[in-house]
């Protein structure tokens, strides 16, 4: 780093990065092109620039009607928003209290608790799909939004606990000790000191919980049996079928559903990595 390499090396390095950026951008541009181009096939020409522009795909997407004439996209978008927000609230509440306990208190079984969260995180909910199906069926929660929210929160908790624990570990303890000497209760300290300090960490866990629910289709399509209860990923995934694919609808739907999360992701991404590595390194 002390001296610059030769010009040729520098140009080559820039070119390499630019090529990779193009590899990254190309598929995304194809999707954008498809969204504004008529027709249902994906890419008949490899050029990422659309030749004819139309909003038909978006009109088709918003206008998809179910068997009772209801607007499916609006309905499913509403489902997705409700489910994702509920998952965020439940997930963040459950994990921030648990993470605080694991970060600040020493009690028997703490190590076991931490290990449990790691082990649970390793085990994908796709594998629990079958026993979960049985449990939800017995509880009468199949085809219900509550059931799906409960399942998603479970999926999100272990990761959120780890991230938040790493974040809490990094906060100075002096403030808490001062507050304790002044006679503040643990709950007050947690609410008035820890939570405000941990805002970036909370934002990341909220983003993660939200994305867990917003981007999931396999549990949703298995547990929900009626079209009006499906979430957006189910709708989008079903537009690309084995025998008939409507890539126009897919592309329009992909843009509408991913742009909001992507925006939030870009705002919060630098905390995301910090949380990940902090949680993992400090164990």
């Amino acid at each position: 780093m002390t001296r610059q390499p030769r010009l040729a090396t520098r140009i080559f390095a820039h070119l390499a990065v630019i090529v990779l950026v193009m590899v990254v951008l190309y598929p995304v541009m194809l999707v954008v092109k498809k969204a504004f181009e008529p027709g249902r096939d994906f890419a008949l020409s490899p050029s990422p620039i659309p030749t004819t522009l139309t909003l038909d795909n978006f009109r088709g997407l918003f206008g998809t009607q179910g068997s009772h004439g209801e607007y499916l996209f609006v309905r499913q978008a509403l489902n997705s928003v409700v489910i994702a927000l509920a998952t965020t609230v439940v997930g963040v509440f459950l994990s921030c209290t648990a993470a605080y306990a694991l970060s600040r208190f020493r009690f028997p079984g703490r190590k076991t608790g931490l290990t449990t969260f790691v082990v649970v995180q390793m085990f994908p909910s796709t594998l629990l799909i079958m026993p979960l199906y049985v449990v939800l069926d017995k509880l009468g929660l199949l085809n219900s939004i509550t059931g799906l929210v409960l399942v998603y929160s479970t999926t999100a908790i272990p990761f959120c606990v780890w991230t938040l624990k790493g974040y809490f570990d990094g906060l100075p303890r002096e403030l808490e000790e001062a507050a304790r000497i002044d006679g503040a209760s643990a709950w007050l300290i947690f609410r008035k000191i820890i939570l405000p300090l941990a805002r970036p960490g909370l934002a990341v866990t909220a983003l993660f919980s939200f994305m867990t629910a917003w981007n999931e289709f396999i549990l949703a399509s298995t547990f929900m049996t009626s079209e009006s209860r499906y979430t957006l990923p189910v709708l989008i995934q079903s537009s690309v079928g084995e025998f008939s694919s409507q890539y126009g609808l897919f592309a329009a739907g992909a843009i509408v559903t991913s742009v909001p999360v992507m925006a939030v992701f870009y705002v919060l991404q630098k905390y995301l990595v910090g949380g990940l590595t902090a949680g993992a390194v400090k164990g």
């Binding site: 995304v28 981007n215 991913s258």
Partner: peptide, 17 residues
């Protein structure tokens, strides 16, 4: 960018490609 895109959309997009 690829990290920000929901992975089921990435998968369907590449399937189409």
């Amino acid at each position: 960018l690829p990290w920000a895109i929901p992975n089921y959309i990435t998968a369907l997009m590449w399937h189409g490609m």
